Each structure stands twice: as C-alpha cells, then as structure tokens.
Simulated assay, not measured.
Amino acid sequence: MAMSMASGITTSIILETVLLHRGADQLPWVRATRTAMGMSMVSMLAMEIAENAVDYHLTGGLVAFGDPKFWLAAVVSMGAGYLAPLPYNYLPS
C-alpha cells in the first residue's frame, strides 16, 4: 500500500508540475513544483488512503486479474477515491 500511495502521489505531482510549467500559467519549474505540492497534497492523500482502504477491504490485498470481483473492487475503490477529497476540494478558501 505504501508503494501504491507513493507512486500515486509522485505521479500526480509530476503531472501537475508539467501542466503548471507548460500550460497557461507558464510557471518556472521550481515554482510549478512547489505549487503542485502545496495545492493538492491533502486531496491526494485523502484519495490514496480511501482507494487503498476500500480495495484492501474488498480484496484482502489479493491481486487476481482474472477475477471479475477484483475489477469490481477496483471500480468501487476508484469511486471512493473520487468522493473522499470532494468536500476538501470545494471548501471555500
């Protein structure tokens, strides 16, 4: 689970950094990285924790690509990962 969370958070930070650097904002790399890390760390942690907790609860940590229950658990965990950070993402700042 720790590797999964680290991979998800790292991938998200890299993607956000590239978008902030190359997108409409055109931020320098260092500022884009700091912004990416600061703007969504709580959201990413909530998403990763919810996804992994639901997935582990439903599958017991067993990866069985041929089992339809595994894929159903994956879909349910993605839904939980989407819903978990929604209140935080839409709170007025």
Results as ranks from 00 to 15, higher is better:
L91N: 12
M78A: 15
Q26S: 09
T11E: 03
M44E: 07
Y88G: 14
T11N: 08
D67Q: 13
G60F: 05
T17R: 00
P92C: 03
L58C: 10
V76I: 15
M47I: 05
G81D: 15
S7N: 09
P28G: 04
Q26C: 08
F65K: 05
Y90A: 02
G23F: 01
M1H: 05
V30S: 08
G60M: 08
L20K: 01
S77L: 02
L72C: 09
L45Q: 11
T17K: 00
P87N: 15
F70N: 15
F70V: 08
Y56H: 13
L72T: 11
R31P: 00
P85H: 11
L62I: 07
P68G: 11
A32N: 00
L15T: 10
I49G: 08
M39Q: 07
V75D: 09
W71Y: 06
V18C: 07
F70A: 12
T33D: 03
D67A: 11
P28Y: 00
P68L: 14
A80C: 11
P92S: 09
I13R: 00
K69C: 06
T35S: 04
P87G: 12
M44W: 05
L72M: 11
S7C: 08
L62Y: 03
M37C: 05
T17V: 07
A53L: 13
A64S: 14
H21M: 11
Y56M: 14
S12Q: 06
V30P: 01
W71C: 12
Y88H: 15
S43T: 07
M37D: 04
I9M: 08
M78F: 15
T17A: 03
L19D: 01
D67M: 11
A84N: 05
I9R: 01
M41C: 08
A84R: 01
F65C: 04
L58T: 05
A84W: 00
S93K: 09
H57A: 10
P85E: 10
L91T: 11
A46T: 06
L62G: 04
N52F: 08
G38V: 00
P28K: 02
N89H: 08
I9E: 03
P85K: 06
I49N: 05
H57W: 06
S77W: 00
A24Q: 06
A53T: 07
I49Y: 05
G38E: 04
P87L: 13
P92N: 12
V54P: 01
L83V: 12
M47K: 02
D67C: 11
